[in-house]
């Protein structure tokens, strides 16, 4: 009886611990008076475990499908021709795949210009947000100074203020400085720790630094190091996991942001990639609602082009993510985000 209870607990609660009792059971089996019964229990336990695993994987693979569906859909649709999209017998795989939609997409949104803009803006934001974010986060975590807790409460408060609340004064501020239609409003704030969702980044760093043992710093202080040197030479090299997580988050959030660019950049030639994508989506929706004939013939506005635009827009992120996801998922555990 106790063996079966044990078996189900092992099988479902803690998959890794379930491996432990098995070898000991194998060793002690011959010594027991009725080995057959023991092995039957073990068999039953193993069957439950295997069935549990299979069920788990079936569920997870189904979820994987749901998560990958938008991406698969984009890929499948972008290589279709316009006639194939309207053909209900072709669900997934195009019979005559063509890259025509991509050609339309890249010329309509002037892809390479947008790519260049988004890449440089995001690179600057990542650099600023990571360096300054680490510094400010460390400042909130370790050195004690009067008013630290108060400032941290303000930091928490800033996170819940939506951008539109500040939009008008920010616009007036930037236009007074003559910075509308320049990239300065997108590049400079990250260097003050005020990039897209900057508050969250600071909290990630603060939590990480608070989780590190303070003995390291104490030793350095005894040896006469200044707080800056302690931060720069001891704490920062230890913060690699947090830095990696912050870099990816900042990249993704800056790349995907359309609110702030929408406020400060209104010249279509200077649009970021995200704005270009949004713009095309609006064009598509309008054309679709207005009349069916005009947009179905030209070929420049269609669902396949829409999906090509989308795919082109996220392609750089996708490539970077594929190469860094292994380090990323490992790092996120070590950032102590939820301590």
């Amino acid at each position: 009886m106790s063996a079966t209870v044990n078996g189900t607990v092992n099988g479902t609660v803690n998959g890794t611990a379930a491996g432990l009792p098995a070898p000991s059971g194998a060793e002690s089996a011959p010594a027991r008076p009725r080995p057959r019964r023991v092995s039957r229990y073990r068999l039953r336990r193993n069957v439950t475990r295997v069935l549990g695993k299979i069920l788990l994987w079936v569920v997870l693979i189904n979820f994987t499908y749901v998560f990958l569906f938008p991406l698969i859909y984009m890929m499948a649709t972008s290589v279709k021709t316009l006639t194939e999209i309207n053909n209900p017998s072709i669900v997934w795989i195009s019979r005559e795949p063509s890259l025509q939609a991509f050609r339309f997409a890249s010329s309509i949104i002037d892809y390479f210009r947008g790519l260049w803009i988004s890449t440089s803006v995001s690179a600057a934001a990542v650099l600023g947000q990571t360096c300054v974010g680490a510094m400010v986060g460390y400042g909130f975590a370790r050195p004690r100074f009067p008013g630290r807790e108060f400032l941290f409460w303000i930091l928490l408060f800033t996170i819940i203020v939506p951008l539109p609340t500040l939009a008008v004064p920010l616009y007036l501020f930037y236009s007074k400085l003559d910075l509308i239609n320049t990239f300065m409003p997108l590049i400079v704030p990250p260097f003050l720790g005020w990039g897209v969702r900057g508050g969250m980044i600071l909290i990630v760093f603060r939590q990480f630094f608070r989780g590190l043992p303070s003995e390291l710093e104490d030793a350095a202080y005894v040896d006469g190091a200044s707080p800056f040197r302690v931060f720069w030479q001891i704490m920062l090299p230890l913060a690699k996991p947090a830095i990696l997580v912050v870099m990816l988050f900042t990249l993704v959030w800056t790349w995907n942001d359309t609110l702030l660019p929408g406020l400060v950049i209104n010249d279509t030639a200077a649009y970021t990639l995200g704005q270009r994508m949004e713009n095309y989506a609006q064009l598509f929706t309008q054309a679709r609602h207005s009349s069916a004939q005009t947009w179905s013939t030209s070929g420049e506005i269609g669902e396949n082009v829409l999906m090509s635009v989308t795919l082109l827009g996220i392609l750089p992120l996708l490539i970077i993510y594929i190469f860094t996801q292994r380090y990323f998922t490992q790092s996120i555990d070590r950032t102590g985000l939820v301590e």
Partner: peptide, 25 residues
Amino acid sequence: TFLRAVFFLPVVIGSAGVIQHMLSV
């Protein structure tokens, strides 16, 4: 690791433009 990468994918590609695109179709 693989599954976690997949489940985080929407955050990576989930820009406003993309969401709007996907919802519009």
